[in-house]
Design a protein around this nucleic acid. Sequence first.
RNA 1: GCCGAUGUGGCGGAAUGGCAGACGCGACGGACUCAAAAUCCGUUGUUCGCAAGAGCAUGUGGGUUCAAGUCCCACCAUCGGUACCA
Length: 801
Amino acid sequence: MVDKISKYNPEEIETKWQDHWEKNKLFYAENDCTRPKFYALVEFPYPSGQGLHVGHPRSYTALDIVARKKRMQGFNVLYPMGWDAFGLPTENFAIKNKIHPAVVTEKNISRFKSQLKSLGISFDWSREINTTDPKYYKWTQWIFLQLFKKGLAYKSEVAVNWCTSCKCVLANEEVIDGKCERCSSEVIQKVKSQWMLKITKYAQRLIDDLELVDYPERVKAQQIHWIGRSSGAEVNFETDIGEIIKIYTTRPETIFGVTYLVLSPEHPFIENHKGKIKNFDEVEKYKIEANKKSDFQRMEMVKNKTGVQLEGIEALNPVTSKKIPVFVSDYVLMSYGTGAIMAVPGHDKRDEEFADKYKLPILKVIEEVNKREKMVNSEFLNSLEVSEAKTKITNWLETNNKGKKKVNYKLRDWVFSRQRYWGEPIPIVHCDRCGYVPLNEEDLPLRLPNIELIKQSKNGESPLVSVHDWVNVTCPKCKGKAKRETDTMPQWAGSSWYFLRYTDAFNDKNLASKEAIDYWMPVDWYNGGMEHTNLHLLYSRFWYKFLYDLGIVPFPEPYKRRTSHGMILGENSEKMSKSRGNVVNPDDIVNKYGADTLRVYEMFIGDFEKAAPWNTTGIKGSRRFLERYWGLQEIFDVSINEKELDFKLEAKFHQTVKKVSEDIENLKFNTAIAALMSLINDIYDVKAINKKYFRIFTLLLSPFAPHVTEEVYHRCNLGEGVACAQKWPTYDNSKCIDSNIEIVLQINGKLRSKLTAPRGIQKDEIFELFKSMPEFNKWTDGKGIVKTIYIQDKLLNIVVK
RNA sequence: GCCGAUGUGGCGGAAUGGCAGACGCGACGGACUCAAAAUCCGUUGUUCGCAAGAGCAUGUGGGUUCAAGUCCCACCAUCGGUACCA
């Protein structure tokens, strides 16, 4: 019996145990190990100037609980952390404050790191990585070189977002409602030469291999939708000037309903035949106007379609040989399909709007007959069903050499260059004679040159352009004069493979050793935000598949299981942001209540996968729970008669071990904590706890609140060593069951009475027991029993009439 | 428009087709205190009723079932993603 218990003081005990774990390297994973492995991963943060957000610990604590439990279950656990530190905000901050981004990054990282350490998360800090470290980005560049060598990295003229005021290229994420994120000026599309990665080559595999992994359905659906596979046909339309116009359609069966063609304004056909287009001036003018339109304006145009007919040009419908006009309109995009469409105003809303406006004929080729869709006005397709007609016309086009089956994807290749300083340099040299020449692998890493003062680029070029002695080099191939690529890689580059680096973080011969990769990969459980579904998650799957094709990784998918946490909102249920003034700083919570309270609160706040608003008074409940746990020391008594306590608590303990174990695996941290709260309430009802149960409770709570449990484990001598290194408690299914159960009496489905009976009681017995109760007679008097239903050990429902 | 999700007390949220509201917050009443905080003990979906008790309750309307928050059909609302993608 402990006579006098000192106050629960998280400030004191938390740093004490954090130091202890660190000093004893308790969370360092072993690379050479015979135990089964478990690789738990959370998205590594961008070390922003704002410091840690309360959203970060939600994800980190959740997988910390998983990692800690798996360690206790005997797994060799890898739970690493690092920094995704290249990026625009740091560069902008550096420009504004005239500091070097590397200095800003270092400062931010050290703040983040101390904040993370104060939460007691069991990261393996011996494998800490940093994407801005040349030893790391050497391998990011190396992967780029492999992509280049396989023809998957190429330079191309593409339309990019261009801010008219900053005179700078913007990433899609930097464009908000068609305006620049920073200055709110208009953003237009501009054609620029950019490095691209051919992610489209992997489109089909990125869809198919989703079957190999355990992701939430919403994540899979979003990726599939983003990749946007559609199947249809490419059809050749001859023109009266010789050149064929190739169109793409998903509805080839409607070809008899085609009344005109539409080209996108950028379609090369226009430029190629300008001499033959009688109204070329008008067409050219339209083209320029269309180009000037911002995304925002184009969106407005959805309701009001515009276009110009190409006068002097006619196309021939390949099935009817009828002549049809050709238009140019910006409702057709050059970036999808062939940049040209066959218009079927009878069965396409957009074509119909256009046809209405320009008084073009509208022809119906599908009609409902006896509730079935049948082809009409379509010669040899007439009276077929739509799907039959589709097959027939596609075959017809193929045999007559007028078209072919075709699958298209909405997914575009990845624009991979940024006109920025703070990113990985692209290891390519431009030589007038040899073209784009890759650096030799021995020359990696290609380091960022040090620039004293980084200035905002003027005309959309990288600040690196002005570093002449870095830019001007000799060509690795011909030794002639050449220039380095001055664009850098986007923020998503370093994060596309970082999880591989953790397996062997300091290897300077390979991105990681074969043994390390084969042992640790794939990641067993990866938790991260929904906002990365179509960005980081897709990009990293693409890179991983590429590395799989190179034989570097053993399995085509990097993440076995992916889960997604919901956002933590401000108290007003809005997104936390400085401008809304509803930001909660995790440091304040740790200082006021302790890290354990913050951890328990964030896990208890609600369904892990859903957004949840912060509630300042709610935290008190979590603190109170830990105080009550701390208070168990007062009723702890080693001499308590085990049998007597077993009688009252045994089943509950077995149930709780089972529930907590399963809930952690199923992301139900909130109900796991609720079960522990309920158990502690029962312990207080009994007003006693012995060593056996105190130990079990402590171990169950330890992944959630690692510091206080460690302290109590130590103070009360609950066992050898430290709590986090003990075996995870097990349960016996047969002991989860109470021997007495409550059975419910329903009359016509309504609850009328209850009684307690021994488990396993039979229908006849329970019926007799209920029959003797006054409630039974009250509700059945004067009525006939039609039916009785007994659910073993649960309920008896009597149907009367 | 399309895809996905969600809808339960004052609030966050629990419920393998089988007692709706676990657990927590808040509120109310009480104990302790000179007082307050903290703590502890009660009460707390709603309506009618002094009470015993009864009725009504899981976005709306139907259906299946002995039994529906849960399954089926139709709709409404909110959130997220995406969008002239042919």
